[in-house]
Amino acid sequence: MISLIQNLIDALSLGSLYALVALGIGLLFGILRLINLAHGDFITVGAYALIVPSTEAVAQLAIGGFHPILLLPSIALIVVILALLTDALVFRPLRRAAQPSLMIASFAVSYIIQNGLILIYGARPKNLNLWPALTGQIALGELRLPTLQIVTIVTTLVLMIGLALFLKRTSYGVQMRAAAEDFRMARYLGVRGNLVIGMAFAISGVLAAVVSLLFLSQTGSLETGLGVPLALFGLVAVVIGGMGSLVGAVVGGFLVGAIVTLLQAYLPVEMRSFRDAFAFAFVIVILLWRPSGLIRAKAFDQRV
């Protein structure tokens, strides 16, 4: 019973991270039809922004030393600026480009960011213990829950509720949803395309920033490729959930979290290292079984 609950919490907290990543990717896909392979690198930048830029082996906190109330907005701001710059410099000139070009462009952005980080911070991983207080446990009777996991789950819930309220209750949110469904029609009704896309990049950046802090608190290690696996799993989640549906992205994220946790817990030991391979194979299976994912978005037009 205890181990079951623990597994459940594991699944929920891992799923939370994936859901946040998937939302960031899904939001841009919904509006731009862009599969942003650079989303993971937004996350990485959020983590590196905590320390003093230098190629020294030992990380020195910069923003990372701020009080959390200042730290969070600062990191979010940096990642948002990066995301907006990416849009302005790369994706805006490609508005009319075909989908493969967009995907390749995001691959290029990813490559540039990763190597930019190597250039500034060096290629070696660095230890960084952000918020040691979060590594403790909360005891609930016999049940001992890692604080960090609870924080992760709660943060994700708060962010998702915030995002849902924004999308549902504000005029910009409604415009974003309209643009995600039918970008051209939205523009015919006066919705400013670049503004909506900018907002999507900005929100995606905020989500990435939060993920970077949560993830870094878990691993305690900075590495220029740290966001890549997260982005891959996020993409998996988006595909499984249904491309173009934000609810789908969240569902997909939690599902992937659950699958990975289950595989980790119940695969025979000698198979455990193939966990990721199973997860990716599952993507192919889902694509074959339900090409539009579990939650079907309005059939998206390939021509647009």
């Binding site: 190597i118 250039l119 060096g122």
Partner: peptide, 20 residues
């Protein structure tokens, strides 16, 4: 270090934008 890769990334982005 890293300039080579960044240069390649930029070259690719430029080609995508200006000579698709």
């Amino acid at each position: 270090r890293g300039s080579q890769e960044i240069g390649l990334g930029l070259a690719l982005a430029l080609v995508l934008i200006f000579r698709p």
